[in-house]
Design a protein around this nucleic acid. Structure first.
Lengths: 345, 345
DNA sequence: GTTAGCACTCTACGTTGTCGAGTGCTAACG
DNA sequence: CGTTAGCACTCGACAACGTAGAGTGCTAAC
């Protein structure tokens, strides 16, 4: 059996209507649709075929049909149309990014809020992974004899602080010397790329300074690992309650639980960081709580390199056309915003 | 009618049992309680009195009785006993604070997690209010010609960064001079107390430096206001689903919505910051979503001054004895932890 | 190949009846 | 006079039952 033109059209209509109504679609309802000028009996036959092919299923005998994950996948891959966002919406998004944001973190948090607001789904965003960030410079501030505050500023204007505990007292001057060496080595590379080339520079340092540097380098690497437990910001957790499929309290509980689990979420959001847009539908999600959800994410980039993501999660019955359109627009706006921020610098 | 000894005992038993079972308590059930050696008929009479006095009510005619807010209030004020925590629990709490935490923010976030974990209620904690923090020092780092990164370190070992945009280019040396003046003026006082005394020091500065300082001071004050939109960390949002009174999806939605509202929450948590422990029961809460919840908060202090809070929220049918015991212990441990951190410095 | 018609299925929903827990009232008891 | 046993009554929870309506699959006719 093949998916001919008519079957496709029927399937598309079912998906569209079901996304709207959340109610199983029956043959009679469908035949009333102005686009359909075939009888309900014919549609019944076609629907039976589509069910056999795995695109539809019935919650129970004598109910209408509901699209399966396979149907949504087909819809998303072949039938969906990305539309241009309305001017008002475009303006709203742009205005968020027009007020200049000094703090990158703030921009990424606001993006989650904006996203949830305009899509009415639960949204989230991830802070950039440390390994992808380009150092601008490192500065050390002596807090106490054995404690040093390291301030790390990246090209993307992300500021991070780390308190480092040393094994022996350090002096202000030595710290300055060490930071100078580090700043030269790290110029325009990521912390991740910091390699042994730094050893060449050791000659310029005094014995004491060298020891200090050798103590600090492993700590830098440690921070990297630490940081990979990535921060995730979410917004609109309550939005999930607007969907009848989550009226069941157990399901809602599982959902909220999972969304509060930073580690799971961080992994979920970055597994497709290589793609500009990624859509995962129902069973395609490995996480138990997302098996009846769809997750759509977009990747943001710096200098063409993907460094973080944002996205929404909602029922599989998601308004994919709209969500994808919004995410694609937002992705471009956000990239533009970052690049403005960096080049302004 | 007066609350005699027997009425009190009956009321106490009802509260205790209802907290356990979440089911209305009937006279027969109560008469079976070993502590009660009066018949169910007598209890019925007493219950009728207690209802008339406003301590109990019936969900419907032929149901048992349920404690009112007034009953919980009486229970909490007069009948409850704070117990000593079990040794294992004490150890668990202490171990969290024994690993030295460099970042204050981390400690406060972990406290929320710990609290939710050991009480099984939704927990939260607030970061300290900027106005209560004691400056240790301020440092400026020149990012670009017109942009300065201000690093603020407090005695409590809280590190904050702010990017400041200047009206005209600044030089490294001028920034150092300005930070020196500020560091002297702010020594051991809070940002909030920063007053005009600073004007006396202006003589020591060059014209250029003076202008810079005058530009930075208002920004400092602005940060103060900004910061008063206080950060709140929460944990165990999903815990609320464990209570049958929140099985209703609308109620759960309202709850999650409110808990995601930083501003409301921040206000809620700090309104009783002057008290070591505060308990708000049901209708005593002004927030709509908390009208059938109880909120218990504890205040943490530095040098005897209250600077922030943490606490839990759950159904009015809350295990007050346990929660208060935990919060009181945690409060003391946390205070001790902070004071260790500061004095170690 | 398409459609009308029909018997069939299953859920949602309202009705009805029963059970049990709990109450208030009254009368009797110590 | 406070306490208690007894009794009639109330009400929600729950199961059983019946009906309405939406939808299906199959068959026969177009």
């Amino acid at each position: 059996m093949t998916l001919d033109e008519r079957k496709l059209q029927i399937l598309e209509t079912i998906v569209r209507e079901y996304i709207q109504s959340a109610e199983p679609i029956g043959s009679r309802t469908l035949s009333k649709n102005p686009k359909m000028n075939i009888s309900s009996a014919t549609i019944r036959n076609e629907m039976a075929d589509l069910e056999e092919m795995g695109y539809l299923y019935q919650p129970h005998t004598s109910a209408g049909r509901v699209p399966s994950g396979k149907a949504y996948r087909l819809y998303v891959d072949k039938l969906m149309t990305i539309m241009e966002l309305g001017g008002i919406l475009q303006d709203e998004i742009k205005s968020v990014y027009s007020t200049y944001m000094d703090e990158f973190t703030e921009a990424i948090q606001r993006t989650a809020r904006l996203l949830s607001h305009i899509t009415s789904y639960t949204a989230f965003s991830t802070a950039p992974q440390a390994k992808y960030l380009n150092c601008k410079f490192i500065k050390f501030i002596l807090l106490e004899e054995m404690k040093v505050l390291m301030v790390l500023v990246t090209k993307e204007r992300i500021v991070r602080n780390y308190v480092i505990t040393l094994s022996q007292p350090a002096e202000e001057a030595a710290l300055t010397a060490v930071s100078n060496v580090l700043n030269i080595c790290l110029k325009d590379i990521t912390l991740y790329e910091l390699n042994d080339s730094i050893m060449d520079k050791l000659d310029a340092l005094s014995e004491e300074e060298r020891e200090l540097l050798l103590e600090i380098i492993p700590l830098l690497k440690e921070i990297l690992v630490e940081e990979d437990r990535q921060k995730v910001y979410s917004d609109g957790l309550d939005k999930i309650f607007n969907f009848p499929e989550f009226a069941d309290i157990d399901r809602a509980k599982k959902f909220i639980e999972t969304l509060n689990h930073q580690t799971i979420l961080a992994h979920k959001l970055t597994e497709n960081i290589q793609r500009d847009l990624s859509i995962q539908i129902g069973e395609e999600n490995v996480e138990e709580a997302f098996k009846d959800c769809s997750v759509v994410t977009a990747t943001y980039k710096i200098d063409g390199k993907p460094i973080g993501t944002f996205g929404v999660v909602g029922p599989t019955r998601m308004n994919y056309d709209y969500v994808v359109s919004v995410l694609d627009f937002l992705r471009k706006e956000f990239n533009a915003h970052i690049s403005r921020a960096i080049n302004n610098a």
